[in-house]
């Protein structure tokens, strides 16, 4: 057991974690943030994607100990109350959601992509989502949603999450 503290969706968290505990189990089981999904538990499907210090990671293969002092953003931290992030809006309007189990991970991978590359080409979008498996959609609607989100948000997407709010509080 070790004591760690880190920022999750703009809020500080401090607590004990096990040496073998993954970031995914920590956020799902201890923090109750079940929006991040466990699809394979071995870093292959991307359903557990979160953003760690600005980079998308498979939280099922990140040891919880590693996030000490870092910032984590999950799907729950993306919308501001009822106001959705443009990526979420685009996933709805473009029909990118079917069963929805891959959706939070897809959205977080998209967020990481658009933060670093606000106007990606189709090929760059497909590359950025290559680690996120989806069995329902065939990816076409998802790629369309990412393109639309890029158009909607432009360069402002990077700051558009709840971290901004917490800074002001």
């Amino acid at each position: 057991m070790a004591l760690i503290s880190f920022m999750i969706n703009g809020q500080p968290w401090k607590g004990q974690v096990e040496a073998h505990e993954t970031l995914l189990d920590l956020i799902r089981d201890k923090l109750g943030l079940t929006g991040t999904k466990k699809g394979c538990d071995s870093g292959e499907c991307g359903a557990c994607t979160v953003i760690l210090n600005g980079l998308s990671v498979n939280s099922c293969i990140v040891p919880a100990l590693e996030v000490e002092g870092k910032e984590v953003l999950t799907i729950e931290g993306l919308s501001r109350g009822e106001v959705l992030h443009p990526i979420q809006e685009a996933f709805i309007s473009e029909g990118a959601v079917q069963c929805g189990f891959c959706t939070p991970g897809m959205i977080m991978s998209t967020k990481a992509l658009l933060d670093s590359n606000p106007h990606p080409s189709k090929q760059e979008i497909r590359q950025a989502l290559a680690g996120n498996l989806c069995r329902c959609t065939g990816y076409g609607r998802i790629v369309a949603a990412v393109e639309k989100a890029a158009k909607m948000g432009g360069d402002d997407l990077a700051g558009n999450d709840s971290r901004e709010i917490s800074d002001k509080v």
């Binding site: 943030l33 079940t34 929006g35 999904k37 993306l78 709805i92 029909g95 959601v97 929805g100």
Partner: peptide, 21 residues
């Protein structure tokens, strides 16, 4: 006419509850 998905809102904010949750 195309309509957006009934349960899409819950799914894009991570609130849809699967058996895992």
């Amino acid at each position: 006419k195309s309509a957006t998905k009934y349960d899409a809102f819950a799914k894009v904010i991570g609130e849809a509850q699967y058996i895992q949750d």
